[in-house]
Structure formats: C-alpha cells, structure tokens
Amino acid sequence: MNEENIKLVYNNLLQELRRGNIILSVLSQLTEPQYGYSLVVLLEEKGISIEPGTLYPLLRRLEKQEILESNWDTDTSKPRKYYRLSENGKLIYKDLCVEWFKMVDSMDQILKDKE
C-alpha cells in the first residue's frame, strides 16, 4: 500500500468512526430548541465538526422517527425551523447515554490493555 492509499483508508475509517457519534452529539444539544445552522455553529464550538449537508437531512429524518419535534418560528423577519427533543426523544437519548458511557469504559479498557 502506498502512502496515498494509506491516507485514503485512514480517512474513510475516521469518517466511519465519526459517523457513529453524530446522532448522539446532535441529540445532546437539542434539549433547547435550535435551528439548522445554529446547531452547526454550536457543535463546531464544542469541537464536533459536522457538515451542514449531512446535518439538515439528519434533523428531518430524526423528526420523521419522532425523536425530534419541530416548529416554524415566524415571529422574526426570517422564518426558521426549530428542532428539539420530543418526549420520546428524551427517553431514547437518556438510554443511549447510558450505553455510550458503558461503551467508552469498555473501549478504554480494551485499547489501554494493548498499550
């Protein structure tokens, strides 16, 4: 494998790794209502970079699964669609967090054992 290939494979794997965490990081920020772009900025500030082209469709899909609920804010001059966790979403998010910490513990164990 030449250097370029190694880089390509590495980038693909890194993307896979990040992809799995996107949903949880999005849910974590939606106890308060956010609109699409404000969520991109918010996550960026916390060190999680997510492409807008991925995030906007994801919000819509999560809404369809009834994890998120949305409403259009038309009070301001510019209408915006705000998303936040639904009641079901909050329960699911809580359970996912429990799983997440378990997983982090196990992964830490496995990876540190090898060092």
């Binding site: 699409g36 900025v41 906007y56 819509r60 669609k81």
Partner: peptide, 17 residues
C-alpha cells in the same frame, strides 16, 4: 416544498452569519 423552505432558511442563515 418542505425541504425547499427549510434549506433556503438554512442557507440564508449561513450567509448572514
């Protein structure tokens, strides 16, 4: 229509900010 509306609002936000 839904996607259009939402995408448009998001793009305008990105430009504005």
């Amino acid at each position: 229509l839904e996607i259009e509306e939402e995408l448009k609002a998001n793009i305008e936000d990105m430009i504005e900010q």
